[in-house]
Design a protein around this nucleic acid. Sequence first.
DNA 1: CCGTATCCCAGAGGATACTG
DNA 2: CAGTATCCTCTGGGATACGG
Lengths: 131, 131
Amino acid sequence: MVARQTEIKPSVADDEFSFSPCPIRNVLDRIGDQWSLLVLEALEPQTLRFNALRRSIGDVSQHMLARTLKRLEQDGFVSRTLYPVIPPRVDYALTPLGRSLMVPLRDLMTWADRNHDAVCAARRAYRHTAS
Amino acid sequence: MVARQTEIKPSVADDEFSFSPCPIRNVLDRIGDQWSLLVLEALEPQTLRFNALRRSIGDVSQHMLARTLKRLEQDGFVSRTLYPVIPPRVDYALTPLGRSLMVPLRDLMTWADRNHDAVCAARRAYRHTAS
DNA sequence: CCGTATCCCAGAGGATACTG
DNA sequence: CAGTATCCTCTGGGATACGG
């Protein structure tokens, strides 16, 4: 998206989508935001209900958790199961697609863990040189 | 960051940093934006100058390319070499750290390529069900 | 309990103009 | 050539309030 939409786009109702022809963008636009990755991680070991998920992540607003879940569902990474009981109960779980995404994601997170210190060091070094 | 900064933060001058205690955030906040990944990809096979990089990527504004490069440099993923000639010449290249980051990133991009269709299909399916 | 609606702010990102 | 400065817009994301 982004790239020169320029013209009419008659007020798409939020849950509209914006296909990028570029596969990488389609994935990274989802992963890159603040919460998607945290949600996927929380759901990997177990199915969770909305509020359990919320507590598990910690400081996410319900507003953003709802949005994030909806988009993850749209993209087929997460499944949503509604039980028609009172009070309502909704289970979220990873789909096979979501589970397969976790594989490369795990590697990336492992890299981040291992190289976190190097990145911090680089940032400090930068402050010296570029006084 | 984000998490309840709440208080005073005396106008940090753009190139200031915001250490997240979470390694994943530090990496994803860099990777997740619009251009960082494209820049890293463009620099993987070869060192490039500013405008060559810009053409290579295509539609990035020079404003954002400059910002992106500065941050990638701060984090130690990209090196910047200035040759004091006229007109000025600046070379950008991947550092070893940046190169090592490309490994898990490649896997992620490969996944994205292979599963792009599945994601698009999921999005279309969603529109049906949730008419 | 599980959300949606509303309001608001900060930052991403484009366009254009200017400098060494 | 390689940026910086300025202005603008649009979306991410928090807070709060409301509805089923």
